[in-house]
Amino acid sequence: MNLALPNGTLLQKLIAACGMLLMLALLTVLFPETGSAHGYLDVPASRALLCKNNVNKDCGGASYEPQSAEAGKGFPNGGPADGHIASAGNTFPKLDEQTSTRWSKVPMTSGPQAFKWQLNAAHATTTFKYFITKPGWNPNAPLTRASFDLTPFCQVDLNGASPSNYYTTNCNVPERTGYHVILAIWEVSGAPTAYVNVTDADFGGGSALPAPANLASTAVTDNSVSLSWASVAGAASYQVYRDNVAVGTTTSTSYTNTGLSSGTSYSFTVSAIDSSGKASPSSSVVTVKTTGGSTTTYPAWSATTVYVGGNKVSYNGVNYEAKWWTQGETPTGTNVWKVIP
């Protein structure tokens, strides 16, 4: 019996379409999609996240997609090449620029530290691992394997399990002083993919520079505070902190912090940074309240309450609205919570 089908028959087209669907399904099983499995280090803030938050400047594409710093996995034997570690193998070339003063730094202490990732898609995971630069590394040279202690100071193996979208690793950070870079890597299971983030950390100490004096507010608006301070001899730059979080770096003795909430109090300090990237002690604290203010008060944020997109809360005198489902994520205005009037 001849079962050949005439060209162009409806049945022949249906069989061809079914064959294509079966092939796509097989490819999905054999080669799981990782393109949506993007993520970035949220705490302590990565170099790329500070680009997105407009603390770091001139960052190229990292300002828009901190979650997309994708490279091969297997560091240090594999992964991004020397000189392109911070950019995840040249994904964002600007991130490879390396000097002691190029990037804003996150204050950090040695010892217990939570490393929190925000994962856009929490795919099956091989491991999270963390490296840190060696004592005496050169902060004014490109990052290479020789810059780092190549034994992870912290590693969590998930062996193919899927983490939560907000995944925290509790680590013990080695003793360091001054400026160091932490390399955080999330390796996806079943694919050659890793997401690579670096954090510029200031461990303090080690600098002979004195703390900047005479920190004062020179102008205040509804959403900005301008600051000035006395010059420190030998300072290559100054790091400005708001509520103990780095918000900017400047080579001058003045700085304007924008994007603030109206009618809200903020505490500022400044440290001088020497040419090797080491920070002086912090200046005295100046607390400034922005003008204006909201007349609407929302329920106080609770770490145990489940919130969904559109829910509004009040936290430390500032009103926030959830952008999507969340629980236990402290409102900051730079995460799932956005500041509202």
Rank of each mutant, 00 (worst) to 15 (best):
P66G: 01
P32Y: 04
V339Q: 13
A322I: 03
Y166F: 08
T290D: 09
L150P: 03
A300E: 15
V188R: 03
G292K: 07
K105W: 08
F148G: 01
F128T: 00
H123G: 05
Q12T: 12
V55R: 02
K312H: 07
P139V: 07
G111W: 09
E70Q: 08
T334S: 12
M23A: 10
Y238T: 01
S261Y: 05
F268Y: 15
G204Y: 04
V245Y: 07
L41I: 14
I15E: 12
S252G: 15
S283G: 06
T290S: 07
G206M: 07
S252L: 10
V286M: 02
S224K: 05
P163E: 09
Y241C: 02
R176K: 15
N7T: 10
T193I: 11
G333E: 08
S164T: 15
S276F: 08
Y238V: 00
P212T: 07
T109K: 14
A114I: 09
K312Y: 03
N2V: 07
G79I: 00
I340Y: 10
P299I: 07
E321L: 06
R102L: 06
A272L: 04
K312L: 06
C18P: 00
T269R: 02
K13D: 14
P299W: 08
Q155P: 02
Y238S: 01
E329P: 00
L24A: 06
T251R: 14
P299Y: 09
N311S: 14
S283F: 07
L21H: 03
Q155I: 13
V220W: 03
V43F: 11
S100F: 01
T91F: 01
T109C: 05
I15Y: 12
A272C: 08
L143W: 00
L30D: 02
F75E: 07
A213N: 11
N140Q: 06
T99Q: 08
K52W: 10
T125Q: 10
N56T: 09
M20W: 09
G263S: 04
S294Y: 04
G205R: 05
I340E: 04
F148D: 00
R176A: 15
W337H: 03
L14V: 13
V156Q: 14
S162K: 15
N90E: 12
N138Y: 04
C171W: 00
A124S: 14
W337V: 00
Q98Y: 00
Y320W: 09
A208V: 06
T221Q: 09
C18A: 13
G204M: 05
T332S: 15
Q239W: 08
D42N: 15
G310T: 11
S254H: 08
K312P: 02
G39W: 00
G136M: 02
L227R: 05
P331F: 02
Q155F: 03
G72A: 11
L10S: 14
